[in-house]
């Protein structure tokens, strides 16, 4: 998988913090952030998930001229798609090597990990896939390592 340049911008951090309802000034107020231990605007712990914005082929973003599986004239824009949930997120883990700061440009690389299967009463056969994303700084040092486990279910998860 190609490496992705991931610019970590102050405005993006502000919008991300807003979305998780986090009003901590260290995420949006440069002057206030300077006076904290972080000594400047930093990113919230789950921010690197937004690397998806910089992946040109990210499959969960509609693209001009391409079919999108969400609703339009009909409930799904892709004919013949089974009424399955597609992929869900099962686990996520971050290792922080140092704080991630506004203004840096990370280089992010995804590596495929293990794959395994499990039977579940709530959703049928489950297929788990692990992905490791290494987010490195301009000197090549690791800033955040992200490990995610996605699961594909046989049928929608029974919420009862």
């Amino acid at each position: 998988m190609p490496k992705i340049a991931f610019p970590v911008e102050a405005t993006h951090i502000m919008m991300f913090a807003r979305a998780i309802g986090d009003t901590n000034p260290v995420y949006h107020d440069a002057e206030a952030a300077k006076k904290t231990e972080a000594k400047g605007v930093i990113a919230p712990p789950t921010f690197v998930q937004a690397v998806a914005q910089f992946d040109p082929d990210y499959h969960l973003r509609p693209k001009p001229g391409q079919q999108w599986f969400g609703s339009g004239k009909t409930p799904t824009g892709v004919e013949g798609k089974p009424a399955s949930s597609g992929g869900l997120h099962a686990e996520q883990e971050y290792t922080y090597h140092r704080p991630l700061r506004a203004g840096e440009v990370l280089t992010s690389e995804v590596k495929q990990g293990k794959t395994w299967e499990k039977e579940s009463k709530r959703a049928g056969k489950l297929i788990f896939r692990e992905r490791i994303t290494e987010h490195r700084d301009a000197t090549g040092e690791l800033v955040v390592t992200a490990r995610s486990v996605g699961v594909t279910t046989e049928r929608p998860v029974d919420a009862s």
Partner: peptide, 28 residues
């Protein structure tokens, strides 16, 4: 899932402070 992890992370950073986390992992 990542919204619920982000919301959970807010509780963590409010408690342990800014730039203090070494590791944070969850199951949904």
């Amino acid at each position: 899932g990542m919204l619920s992890m982000g919301l959970t992370g807010k509780m963590l950073t409010n408690w342990v402070g800014d730039a203090r986390l070494k590791k944070f992992g969850v199951r949904f």
